[in-house]
């Protein structure tokens, strides 16, 4: 039951940087020398509906480690923790709307948070979900459930949250890796209309010394990024 009314969201406004992007709060670099995994750099820009850069945005990311384990008590899976990797990143945007992270490519993670504790194969789904994936039962108390667990593993991905002046509530999306074959089986990606899935795919740039994935976030208009109702 929901006993308490939630506190509503308000914009971060234009003046958040001294607090949220102070030197020890900004986390562009997620790795330490001993962190396990393939080093990658994520680069992109945040654009508005006029195609102009958003210079006063903040991008946060959350990801599993290279083994596919989240640094969080709810992940009781068998994959190993990496004591040198938290999985949280926070970047401001520059005058050109650019943000960046240096991290590692996450491993594939389990679909279901409850799976490891009670072996329940039914994924937990939010009320009123209208997801086009798989065989679905009818609605029961406003909840749609998959008849069978779709697939137990998610493609490697990074959770992305966007804050900015003019965003009354933050935006939630995911970064997937365009060159990752597991994308084809990913349940969340399959909830996204196929013609919009490309907006969630970070594209690998070739040639540099470090592997770079490019991921622009388009708040509005042509090529608008897919955002989730989470």
């Amino acid at each position: 039951m929901r006993a308490y009314l939630l506190t509503g969201s308000q914009t971060v406004g234009p003046f958040f940087s001294p607090a949220l992007l102070r030197e020890d709060a900004c986390r562009n670099v997620l790795t330490q020398p001993e962190t396990v995994g393939e080093r990658i750099r994520i680069e992109g820009h945040v654009f508005d509906g006029d195609g102009l850069p958003v210079p006063d945005a903040m991008v946060e990311i959350w990801q599993a480690n290279a083994h596919g384990r989240y640094n969080h008590a709810a992940d009781e899976g068998p994959a190993s923790l990496d004591p040198s990797f938290t999985g949280f990143g926070r970047s401001g945007t520059g005058d050109d709307g650019s943000y960046w992270f240096e991290t590692i490519k996450p491993g594939p993670v389990p679909f279901d948070a409850q799976r490891s504790t009670d072996g329940d194969l039914t994924p937990a789904l939010p009320a009123g979900i209208a997801c086009g994936q798989g065989e679905q039962e009818g609605s029961r108390r406003g909840v749609t459930t998959f008849q069978q667990a779709p697939t137990s593993v998610q493609a490697p991905h990074i959770c992305v949250t966007v804050f900015a002046r003019g965003l009354l509530n933050h935006l939630v999306t995911r970064l997937y890796f365009a060159d990752e074959p597991a994308n084809a089986e990913d349940v969340v990606l399959q909830c996204v209309p196929s013609e919009r899935r490309a907006t969630l795919l970070a594209r690998r740039k070739h040639g540099g010394a470090i592997v770079v994935y490019h991921f622009d976030i388009i708040l509005q208009g042509a090529g608008e990024t897919v955002f989730f109702n989470l």
């Binding site: 992940d75 899976g77 389990p110 679909f111 994924p123 939010p126 998610q154 608008e224």
Partner: peptide, 22 residues
């Protein structure tokens, strides 16, 4: 006006990725 998304948000299942956090 120029920062609000215009396309519907996508409903997705809650997974371990959302039930964890930093």
């Amino acid at each position: 006006r120029r920062r609000a998304p215009t396309l519907p948000l996508i409903d997705v299942p809650l997974t371990l990725s959302e039930l964890t956090g930093p």
